[in-house]
Each structure stands twice: as C-alpha cells, then as structure tokens.
Write a protein that binds this DNA or RNA. Structure first.
Length: 211
DNA sequence: TAGTCACA
DNA sequence: TGTG
C-alpha cells in the first residue's frame, strides 16, 4: 500500500446534486495504519447476500455498529458474526476525518457510529445499491478511498437508466446526503494501475450514523 | 438483487 | 464494454 500524500490543494466539487467530492482531502498513512490494526481484530471476510451469493469484495467494520449481510438480509450489528465480539473501536483519527469532511460540505456535528471497511481486489466490483439500513437519513454518508483508483457510478433514484460516473483516487473523500442520501450507487470492476503494478487493491472506509 | 451473466 |  502506498502511503504517498499528494500535496495538491484540496478541492471540493459538487459532482452530483448533494454529492461532494473532496479531492486529496487527507493524508493516508495514519488512516491506513489504524485500518490495519482493525483488520487484525476483525478480519476481512466476504458476506452472504440475501440472494445466496457472496459479495465479491471483502468486508469488515469498526465502531459501535457494523454493516452485515446474510441470508436473512442486511443489518447493522454491534457484534461481529465471525469473532462473536464487538467490532473494534472507531479510532479517533477516523471520527475526526469523517466529522471534518461532513462539516466541509455543511453537515455539522456528524458523529459516525459505524465505519464499514471494504477491500476491493482487482476485478471485483460493488453492484448498484442504496444505503438504506440506517435509522436516520438526515445524516450523510462519508466515504474515503485508499489505494487503487476506482470508478464510482451514481444512478440516482432509479437503479437503472441515466448514470454519472467519476474516478475516486487515494485520499479522496465523497460526502452525500439530503436528495442524494438514498441514491443508487456502485463501484465498477477495479482495474490495475499500469504505472503502479504493485498496487493491487483498493480499500474504502464508509462512515455512517447507523443507530 | 452490496451478483452475474447473456446480450447488444 | 456497458447494461438490464
């Protein structure tokens, strides 16, 4: 994993209505260091979907609530089904990053109680879906990208039809809420970086207020 | 259909 | 390769 921090100026662009891309928003090194500690406590695993398939990406969580999937459906749980213990604590660095990103685009006092950590290997993707398992949709979704660049696709209120796609680079934070809160979105199949063949994965941190 | 796969 |  590269720890390089691109020193270009952070930018904030409303890339879709009520969806903001904060380019190069944070140094990655301290964040990925904490993520690695979490992964040791609650390891990555694929999860069974309600339809009986496994997710392509690998998943773990930290914070009070973790997003889980099994044959019964999706739900937030305070217990990791693999370790049968609570999820690892949310690091202070995570809380502050998510709070600062939300505040940058107008959401004050965002205190996430859930951080979903998704690992994308080359060739994996995340199908179009909504984030709708949270209790209160007034809070935004805050998402940090680490590692390989991915193509993020938003298709709005409908799962199919017109869509907008853009790149998410390491250090980028995407924040969405209000009219975009329940927008269908997904991540296209991850491709290798021909200039950095050593990079072989992408890790995404998604901060939410679930409970 | 937090997936895939057949089809354009 | 993008879409339903």
């Amino acid at each position: 994993m590269s720890d390089l921090f691109n020193n270009s100026r952070p930018e904030c662009e409303e890339i879709y209505p009520d969806m903001f891309l904060l380019t190069d928003f944070t140094p990655i090194e301290p964040i990925s260091k904490q993520a690695n500690l979490i992964i040791k406590l609650s390891p990555f695993r694929r999860m069974m979907t309600p339809m009986g398939h496994y997710t392509g990406i690998e998943i773990t969580n930290c914070g009070e609530y973790g997003w889980t999937s099994d044959l019964n459906g999706y739900q937030y749980s305070t217990i990791d089904p693999v370790t049968r213990k609570n999820w690892p604590l949310m690091p202070e660095e995570f809380l502050q990053l998510a709070n600062r990103a939300a505040k940058t685009v107008g959401y004050d006092n965002f205190i996430p109680d859930s951080c979903l950590i998704n690992q994308y290997k080359i060739g994996t993707s995340l199908g179009t879906h909504q984030d709708k398992d949270e209790k209160d949709y007034q809070w935004p979704i805050v998402s940090l990208s680490i590692g390989l660049t991915a193509t993020f696709q938003v298709s709005g209120a409908k799962r199919t039809g017109n869509s907008t796609a853009f790149q998410l680079h390491q250090g980028d934070v995407l924040v969405w809420g209000n009219s975009a809160r329940l927008a269908y979105h997904g991540v296209k199949k991850l491709k290798p970086d021909t200039l950095n063949p050593r990079l072989d994965k992408r890790i995404n941190l998604t901060f939410r207020k679930a409970g």
